[in-house]
Amino acid sequence: MSVYINSIQQISAQQPLSEDWFNEPIMHTEAYNRAIDVDYKQYLAPNVARRLGKILKRALVVSKKAMEESGVAQPEAIITGTGLGCIENTEIFLEKLVREGEELLNPTYFMQSTHNTISSLIAIDAKCHSYNNTYAHSGISFECALQDAFIQLETGKIKNALVGAHDEMTPVYFGILKKSGYLGKANQHFAGETAVAMMLSTKKSERALCSIDGVEKMYTGGKELEGVRGVKKLLSDVDYVMIGTNGVDEHDAVYFDNCAQLFSGIPLLQYKNIFGEGYTMPALGVYAAATCLHKGEIPNHLFLGEKNTKKFRKILCYNQFEGKNHTFVLLSR
């Protein structure tokens, strides 16, 4: 059964709930940039919004917009990928825990400090009692959520699903990741935040962006990808490969080496130069690829290397995390 992306929305370091990034991207120069927030009062009632941290407000707004645009009020599945969950509330909760000597803790921060708060909040807001799941698998969290939805849709278990990818990056956590060498390196694209929601369906809507032809993920333990079962079936007639290069030589070398083996001669695209780096950034790679397929063109700033003007129908999104986890999402028009 075919699977379509019928709607998709984002709040990120680019213009929120907008495709302005396509022609006029914001080129950030700082090592760390938070997402550009919208005026949440326009989308959420005050009594709903008052307890919510930023990640929850963003997740709720992009989800509501994606559902509204697809015409689905109650999805048959709500599946979220998040690397860090509600890290800002977790920090506040832990700070209070230390300051108050493990007594007199505010319940709100505790309740909203878990990873699965996001999916459950969306379900409560939509009054949706169907399948609800959260994947917290660091750099491949989004693809785990997407694959769960894809398999259920492809096998006819469900007819539609809301898939989200949400992560916030606090100053404290950025500092920790910088010290550990994951972010903030010289020449590395900036650390960013993700809020992406997409409505998937087995029924193509008039506004559908593209179809998802396959989702594969694998663990190689750092060995070469060539010959790995599951990848090759996604490779037929691929026009472009969207990869997550982030400006760090040793990180990007994994992409270039594997692309030379698997996708030799296929032009490469990038997205982290405008959306930034973070655990669930691959969702913005899929978002960018889906937008390009829908518009039938690719903006200059997404090309890695020379601009190509050939007609295209298929984009393969390839993400690798620490050279060991590899994911592939094939999109087609």
Partner: peptide
């Protein structure tokens, strides 16, 4: 009810 808990604290 969550507000009640906050008021108790």
């Amino acid at each position: 009810s969550i507000d009640a808990l906050e008021l108790i604290v």
